[in-house]
Structure formats: C-alpha cells, structure tokens
C-alpha cells in the first residue's frame, strides 16, 4: 500500500499496510496528450481509505483536476491515462465502459468545481436528483423523490430546493445539492474537485460541513481537491501536493502543513499564512 508517512518523492512510494484498508489505491498514474505524448500528470501514487479524507493541493494548472478525472476514468477526449487505479483491488482504468458505469454513483461519485453548470439547466434539481436515484438505486419515482427531500434536509437545504431550476440557486446551494446526491447514492468514494472555489465564506463553510458529514456519518472516502490550504487543513487526514503534474509531497496533513519538506509546499504554506495575516490585519483595522 501507499503510505503517507513514507511517501515523499514523486512516483517512489514505498508500500506498507495502512491501519484502515484503502478503498482506492492509485499507482504511478500518468495523464498524457494522445497526439503529442506531452505528460500532464506524471506518475502520481496515492491511497485513500473509507472514512478518511485525502486533500490534493497545488496551484492552478498543477494537474489536480486531471488527476481526479483520471481516478474516475473520466478524462476528456484526446487525453489518456496510464498506471493503475485500484478500487477495492479492481483496476478502473482496465475496466470496460459498462463495468465503470456500474461502479459510478453507488461506489464513486463526483462533486464538480463548476456548481452553476453541473446540473441540466432545463430540469429542476428534484427531477435530476430523483433520476440519479432511480437509475442507480433502482428506486420508484415516489421513493426517489422522498429520498431527495431527506438528503436535502441532511445538507441543511429546504425542500423547496427540489422544485428550483439550477439558475435559481446559488453556487453554494448547488454544491450542497451535489453533496446531497452523493449522500443519497451512498457513494463510498467522493471526489470533490475544488468545491469551495468562488463561494462566499458562509457557503464555503456549509459545503465543507456537508462534505465532512459524508466522511463522518457515512464513512465515505473523500478526495478533496483545492488550492485553499485552509479548507484542506480543516478536512484532510492526508495531503498530496502537486506541482506541474508531479507529486512533490505526500503525507499526514499535520506533518505536511506543519513541517513541509519540499520547497514548493513550504511556499504554499507561507503564502497561506501571509494571506491569513493580511486578512486578520484588514479585519482588525477595517482596511485602513
């Protein structure tokens, strides 16, 4: 297994058994452009266990989103993934489309970065969430709509949200609708790709709380992608730092954030601290 304690150099992870058996193990995952062969993500390895959260951090363009899409075998056309992505020992990258589809929803699900465009603009949230539940859980229409109400309540959203169209809700509410969908599907692994980007402080807190609920109440394994170190610090047990598509540091969240070994991680932590200090000063002096 790939252990956070021992992993540091990209691609050179020593494998040792984790206390909780990992749900997802990625070994030497690379993403390259099919035509040019250009490598966008380079031999990244990671593991995440049920009931735990792995944070993936790095600046924009570091390959976080591509890595996540490779883990879910959802890469855009023109890109190819190599390596192994083992979900309970089964290699997702080697599966047929049908096998992958049977895995999606109930076993793995996604909370995307673009909340405003993640749902079909022509249908209400309730209709769409119920369709997911009918499709993946085999529920009848009435049971699916009941489940929609239940999960919306669990992420602190009023039932009227089910009757709204995506454009009638805020980004934070839509992010929570995605979390509620994963909750309803009982997904065992949720990949949340920058779920708090472009959200106000309250919405950010609500979304993180909803995701935290998935991990603590349902025992979901969560991969949280963000360039917001504060969010990752709150949520993650382990952290993987990406720079230019390569893993530069991977370890326990506390170790990575308090005693970073790689210069790039130190730079990220320093920047975060400097920003926090500036905001604190701003809050104290009212911007003077």
């Amino acid at each position: 297994m790939i252990t956070p304690e021992t992993s540091h150099a990209p691609g050179g992870h020593e494998e040792r058994a984790l206390p909780g058996s990992p749900l997802l193990v990625a070994r030497q995952v690379s993403v390259r452009v099919k035509d040019s062969g250009r490598v966008l993500v380079d031999r990244v390895s990671l593991a995440v266990a049920a009931g735990s959260c792995l944070g993936i951090v790095g600046e924009s363009g570091s390959g976080k989103t591509l890595l996540c899409r490779a883990l879910l075998a959802l890469l855009p056309r023109g890109l190819a993934a190599s390596g192994q992505v083992l979900f309970e020992g089964q290699d997702v990258l080697a599966m047929t489309d049908r096998e992958r589809r049977s895995l999606r929803g109930r076993d793995t699900s996604l909370v995307t970065q673009q909340a405003m465009t993640a749902f079909d603009p022509l249908l209400t949230l309730g209709t769409q969430m119920a369709a997911f539940f009918c499709d993946r859980l085999g529920l009848g229409k009435r049971a699916a709509h009941d489940l929609v109400r239940t999960v919306l309540e669990r992420v602190n959203l009023p039932p009227r949200v089910a009757q709204c169209y995506p454009h009638e809700l805020s980004g934070g509410m839509l992010q929570r609708c995605m979390t509620a969908t994963s909750l309803g599907l009982g997904s065992r692994l949720v990949v949340a790709d920058e779920p708090t980007t472009a959200l106000d402080a309250k919405s950010r807190r609500d979304v993180l709380l909803a995701l935290k609920g998935l991990v603590t109440e349902q025992g979901t394994a969560l991969i949280l992608v963000s360039h917001d170190l504060g969010a990752v610090q709150t949520m993650a047990d382990t952290i993987l730092v990406l720079q230019g598509g390569r893993c530069v540091e991977y370890g326990c969240a506390r170790t990575v954030l308090n005693a970073p070994r790689h210069e790039y991680t130190r730079y990220l932590v320093r920047t975060r601290k400097a920003l926090s200090a500036r905001f604190a000063r701003f809050a104290r002096h009212g911007g003077e």
Partner: peptide, 18 residues
C-alpha cells in the same frame, strides 16, 4: 456533450441513453 452537466451525469453513472 462537453458541458459540465454531462460530465457530472456520467460521473454519477447515468445510462448512456439518459
């Protein structure tokens, strides 16, 4: 087909027909 809601529907395992 390149829009986010299609990616999201795929990620949640909706059928190809849907």
């Amino acid at each position: 087909a390149q829009q986010d809601f299609v990616l999201y529907a795929k990620a949640q395992g909706r059928s190809r027909l849907a």
